[in-house]
């Protein structure tokens, strides 16, 4: 009897455990999961960068591609290759093709503004990255340019204090771009508080290293005692670095960029004093999150108006460590 009770108890216990084990294996279904995947499957994301083939756009595209593949979405890239006109053509035809989300990297604040408005009117969610336009679309994901401008100016100030010539050159990319107007504002904010700093040149290198090299070597010849250069994009600023190297003078070069391996290498070599980086991989994830958000919430295009400023990462000799930067070349392998 006792044995029987024990056995019964055991049996019950066992069966309970078994049931419990079974319950553990089955888990609890998440009722939103299926909807989640359904929301995305078959959706189309279109990406119009300024150009492909540079670290920033390749990075963003790679991260977007990962999410698109995971959620069975289609990512279409239209490469206008530095031509605002070709980009406008691409966006115009995309408007008639009606992708669900349009991710745009503006060459300047005007060229696409009207088209982006039209796109949202046509029901396409527009996400602008890093370089915004005059039109505020659903989402802006990108660097806090004013903050970066301030950080760059401050970094130059560290090296060009009293005792130096305090002469600084500013090398813009393209003054009408969304990034430059912000960085310029940031730099102004700082330099206006430091009247001792003389901005001896403020020129545009048009994102081109060769042009940057000619400009900066000219500036150096005109101002042999130049103390610092505030550059607006690391890829272009390599040209400025070459000019500085050729002059053989100890000129401080501060830059900003996407935190690609090249930046870390050049900071390590002392070519760049500091790079104020917006981390492209993290920006890519922000873009992905915002793509997911606009698609999931089901809000009509043009209603959301969200902004995500990427946090700044200061790459300097002190902060350097392996893995700090990401590699664009690795993406292309």
């Amino acid at each position: 009897m006792r044995m029987g009770r024990i056995a019964a108890t055991l049996g019950l216990a066992l069966s309970l455990t078994g049931a419990a084990a079974y319950a553990t294996a089955a888990g609890i279904d998440d009722p939103r999961r299926a909807d989640y995947f359904k929301d995305f499957a078959g959706k189309t994301i279109a990406f119009v960068p300024v150009t492909m083939g540079i670290d920033l756009t390749e990075g963003w595209a790679a991260v977007m591609k990962q999410q698109a593949d995971r959620l069975h979405m289609k990512l279409e890239i239209r490469d206008p290759h530095f031509s605002a006109d070709a980009g406008a053509q691409a966006i115009t035809s995309l408007i008639s093709e009606k992708p669900d989300v349009l991710v745009v990297h503006n060459p300047d604040v005007n060229s696409y503004a009207r088209l982006l408005k039209r796109a949202e009117a046509a029901g396409i969610h527009v996400i602008q990255i890093n370089m915004r336009s005059n039109y505020n679309s659903d989402v802006y994901v990108g660097a806090d340019w004013i903050g970066i401008g301030e950080a760059e100016a401050n970094a130059v100030l560290e090296k060009c204090g009293p005792g130096t010539s305090q002469k600084v050159a500013i090398l813009q990319g393209q003054p009408t771009s969304g990034s430059d107007s912000g960085m310029m504002k940031g730099a102004d904010n700082v330099f206006s508080k430091h009247p001792e700093i003389k901005v001896v040149a403020n020129l545009a290198g048009e994102w081109d290293a060769t042009k940057a090299q000619s400009i900066i070597s000219t500036v150096i010849q005109q101002n042999p005692d130049l103390c610092g250069v505030v550059g607006f994009w690391d890829v272009m600023d390599l040209g400025a670095a070459a000019a500085i190297k050729q002059s053989g003078k100890p000129i401080v070069l501060v830059t900003s960029g996407g935190g690609e391996q090249m930046a870390c290498d050049n900071v390590a070599k002392g070519v760049f004093y500091k790079e104020i980086a917006y981390q492209v991989m993290n920006q890519g994830r922000d873009i992905n999150d915002m793509i997911a958000t606009v698609l999931e919430t089901g809000l009509p295009a043009g209603k959301l108006k969200a902004v995500i400023y990427s946090p700044q990462l200061v790459i300097s000799k002190e902060s350097l460590h392996p893995g700090l930067c990401w590699s664009a070349a690795a993406l292309k392998k």
């Binding site: 083939g53 540079i54 390749e58 290293a209 390599l238 090249m262 292309k332």
Partner: peptide, 8 residues
């Protein structure tokens, strides 16, 4: 041959 705009 060269997928990137700038080669270092």
């Amino acid at each position: 041959l060269v997928p990137l705009v700038v080669v270092y």
